[in-house]
Simulated scan of single mutants.
Amino acid sequence: MASQYSGGPERRTRTKAMVENWLDERQQMLVLYCKLAGIESFDPDKPEKQLLQDFCQMLVDYVAFGHFEVFDRISSGDERRGRVIKVAQAAYPKIAEVTETVVEFNDKYDFNDHPQPLDSLTRDLSRLGEDLASRIELEDRVVQALLQ
């Protein structure tokens, strides 16, 4: 029976599938982000509340996938290519910093735990968008290294 970490085509297929899942979650998160960013005024009693909850959930899922599927795989030694490790190590500190921003945003706006006034949501979404943009640039470097 082959080891889970055997080399060859199976390993590359698993890497490609992991990257595709990560990018798919990112795309879903960005679609929800754009929908939220396009709303002019927020009212927690309107459908925006559900959209915001859906966004928070997808945002956390996307960030968790990056950490627990991609970066854990690299840092645990399952990734042996030096270039991938080097790119990931360079990108990770900023990615981890953005993760903290994501957690703070989620804690503030996840209505499942507590109702939150939405008067600063537009400003917070803008800041989050800037942080996500820089994270995505770094992730794309990791993706490129993984797929080469």
Rank of each mutant, 00 (worst) to 15 (best):
M1K: 07
Q4R: 00
G7L: 02
R11C: 04
T13Y: 13
N21D: 03
N21G: 10
W22C: 00
L23R: 10
L23H: 13
L23A: 12
D24N: 12
D24Q: 15
Q27A: 13
V31C: 06
C34W: 13
K35F: 14
L36Q: 04
A37Q: 12
I39H: 00
E40R: 05
E40F: 02
P44R: 11
P44L: 15
K46E: 09
E48Q: 08
L51R: 07
F55W: 01
M58P: 04
M58K: 11
L59I: 07
L59Y: 06
D61E: 06
D61P: 01
V63F: 09
V63I: 10
A64Y: 04
A64D: 07
A64F: 06
F65Y: 13
F65H: 09
F65K: 11
H67L: 08
E69V: 08
F71P: 01
F71L: 01
R73V: 11
I74H: 07
D78M: 00
E79T: 03
G82E: 08
R83I: 12
I85E: 02
Q89V: 06
P93A: 06
I95F: 10
E97Q: 14
T99E: 10
E100V: 11
E100H: 14
T101C: 04
V103H: 08
E104T: 10
N106Q: 08
N106R: 12
Y109L: 07
Y109T: 05
N112T: 03
P117K: 05
D119V: 09
L121K: 10
R123M: 04
R123Q: 08
L125H: 02
E130M: 14
A133Q: 05
R135F: 08
R135Y: 09
E137H: 15
E137L: 15
L138P: 03
L138R: 09
D140A: 11
V143K: 09
A145K: 04
Q148K: 15
